[in-house]
Design a protein around this nucleic acid. Structure first.
Lengths: 108, 108
DNA sequence: AACAATAATCGTAATATTGCAATATTAATA
DNA sequence: TATTAATATTGCAATATTACGATTATTGTT
C-alpha cells in the first residue's frame, strides 16, 4: 500500500493529476511567479529568489519540467528557464469545461 | 526536514498550491469527473464507481472538501456531494492570467 | 429498541515527498 | 589546463501521503 493506484484511472485523469500535483507546492508556484515577473527567460538566479537551498530548487525545477510546465534551454554555463504556456492551457481548458458543466446542471 | 516550508511563501501562493495539490491525484480527478457525469448531486455511490475501498474514498472526499473543491450536504443517511465551482474559478483565473502574461512577453 | 445502510474515523503499513549537505558535472574564462 | 560559476545528482533524514481493515457514529426502517 501507499503507492497511488495509477493503473486504475484513465490516461487523461493521470495526466491532469500529474500537472496539478506539480503545481501543488508553494515553492513551485513561487518559481512560476518569478519566471513571470522577470518578464523574460534569461534566468539563472532563481535560487537567490527563494528561501531554499540550491539542490532543493533544482529538484523543484526538475518536477516542473517533467510536468511540462517549464522549458529549460542551456545558455552557456547557465540554464534559461521559461514557462510553457501550452501545459497551462491544458489545465485552463479542463477547468473551464468543468465550470460550464456545473453551471449548466445548476444543482445544490 | 521533509515538511514543506509554508511560512516562507505568500498566502496566495500557499492557497493556489493547496488547491492544485488536492487535484494532484487521479482518484480525486475521477471523483470530480463522476460528480460532473451524474449531472446532479444526489451522490453516495462514489465508492462503487472507484477502484478503491470506502475509507480511501472517504479520505479523498475529505481532502477535496478541505480544499474547497466540493461541498457536502447531509441528505438523510447519505451525503450529497457536489462541485464548488467558485474554487475551480480561482484556479482558472489564475492560469488565465499566467497564460496572457506569457504570451505578452513573447519569449523563447 | 434492534437492525441495516451509509459514511467518518482510527490505526498502521507501504511508499512518496521535501529539504539539504556533499559531491559531481558542465562550460566559460584566465 | 587550472579555476571559477552554475546547475545537477546522490544519499539520507524528517515528514507526508496513500490505502485499507477494523471500528465507530449517524440516520432510516422495521
Amino acid at each position: 500500500m501507499g503507492a497511488t493506484k495509477t493503473d486504475h484511472f484513465t490516461d487523461q485523469q493521470n495526466q491532469i493529476a500529474i500537472i496539478a500535483k506539480a503545481l501543488g507546492h508553494p515553492a513551485r508556484i513561487a518559481i512560476i511567479e518569478y519566471l513571470l515577473k522577470v518578464n523574460a527567460c534569461i534566468c539563472g538566479d532563481i535560487v537567490n529568489e527563494l528561501p531554499l537551498a540550491q539542490p532543493t530548487v533544482s529538484q523543484h525545477l526538475k518536477e516542473l519540467k517533467n510536468a511540462g510546465l517549464i522549458k529549460g534551454n542551456i545558455e552557456g554555463n547557465a540554464i534559461c528557464y521559461c514557462i510553457d504556456e501550452k501545459t497551462f492551457d491544458v489545465l485552463k481548458e479542463y477547468f473551464s469545461k468543468i465550470i460550464t458543466t456545473v453551471i449548466k446542471q445548476n444543482c445544490c
